[in-house]
Simulated assay, not measured.
Amino acid sequence: MTPVTRSGIRLPAWLAVPAVLGAGLVGLPLIGLLSRVDLGGLAALLGSPASREALRLSLLTSLAATVLCVLLGVPLALVLARAAFPGRRIVRTVVLLPIVLPPVVGGIALLSTFGRMGLLGAALEAGGMRIAYTWVAVVLAQTFVSLPFMVLTLEGALRSHDSRYEEVAAGLGASPGYTLRRVTLPLLTPALVSGTVLCWARALGEFGATITFAGSLQGSTRTVPLEVYLLRETDPDGAVALSLVLVLVAAVVVGLLYRPGRQA
């Protein structure tokens, strides 16, 4: 039987085999996770002080990181997509590097910069400002790994959109700021929403850079992924139950971003 796409184009029948294997490779572990969840124990776990504190901290820091990603990522994507300057390709490579960089390496890089003996950390410590192993470090680590998703999403949208609307606005005498607010950003709204949600989801699930740069201090830097890691050693069933929370959040994010009929 030859698979038929929604557009009516026929696909080779052999594609079904690797497609099913690929779906199974991702889906079966999630089914295995669900099979081990004790729903009765989930309510008790989420009611524990450690879990509530981890959830609170994760929500606050991930939202703060998302705000930073919007404030910094949108201008950065606009400059990379529309401005011409020497070294633009190098800047783009550096900005997107955290996507492929192991998070723990990103944590070491942040520690080397903002740590007590880091590039900027020593001066900050002398001024009475400590960043490493504080909630600020959590936000910076989450922003470090999430910002490239905003840049990648918006830059791709900018390159695919026709710039004639902006050219017409400029030709009619609109200032660059007015054109940005009334023409460019409205055109980018779907991509901006997608990039924002992706950044928030990535920040919420961040682990490697956080534990390296911020540590795991209960009530201060221990987010939900870190709490899951610690529970894995002392309470495996609790780790499974708390993992379910992150799986449900991820499912909601994916469902919102890729629901049928939605245009990116």
Rank of each mutant, 00 (worst) to 15 (best):
V94E: 13
T61R: 09
L158D: 03
L42F: 11
S48D: 12
E125R: 07
L97S: 14
A43G: 14
T143F: 15
G195Q: 01
A157G: 06
V197G: 13
V70D: 08
A170F: 00
A19Y: 02
R6V: 15
V252K: 11
T234A: 06
P225A: 01
L257G: 13
V183Q: 00
L57G: 15
R56T: 15
L180I: 00
W14Q: 01
L242A: 01
A44W: 11
M150R: 02
Y133F: 15
V145M: 13
T5P: 09
P3D: 05
L34R: 09
T153W: 02
P3T: 08
E206C: 12
S163K: 02
E167S: 08
G255M: 09
T61I: 04
G127R: 01
I9F: 11
L111D: 06
P86N: 06
S163L: 03
P98K: 09
G24H: 04
A209Q: 12
P186V: 05
T134Y: 11
V253F: 13
G127Q: 04
P225S: 00
R56V: 15
G27S: 08
V79K: 04
A13S: 03
C199Q: 02
V197K: 12
V104P: 14
G41L: 12
A23H: 03
A137L: 14
G115Q: 03
V139L: 05
P29N: 07
V74E: 01
L63A: 14
R164M: 01
V136F: 10
V26G: 07
V240L: 05
A122C: 03
G121A: 09
S146Y: 13
R159Y: 07
L248P: 10
R262E: 05
L226M: 09
L68C: 10
L71P: 15
V252I: 13
L57T: 12
G8N: 13
A109G: 07
V168M: 02
G106S: 11
R36N: 08
P86I: 09
T134N: 14
L63K: 04
L55V: 15
P148N: 11
V4A: 10
L25G: 07
P29T: 03
P29L: 08
V183W: 00
E167F: 02
L147S: 02
A122T: 08
V104N: 14
L246G: 03
A201V: 10
G255S: 12
G171M: 01
V254Q: 10
A209K: 12
Y133E: 14
G40E: 12
L111F: 09
A203W: 04
Y229V: 02
L34D: 14
L140A: 07
G121F: 06
P186I: 04
G261E: 07
L55Q: 11
V168Q: 00
Y133L: 12
L60C: 08
Q263N: 07
R10H: 09
L25A: 12
S112Q: 08
A137V: 12
L15T: 05
I211C: 11
R164F: 00
A64T: 05
G41P: 11
V20F: 06
L124Y: 05
P103C: 14
P103E: 14
V247G: 01
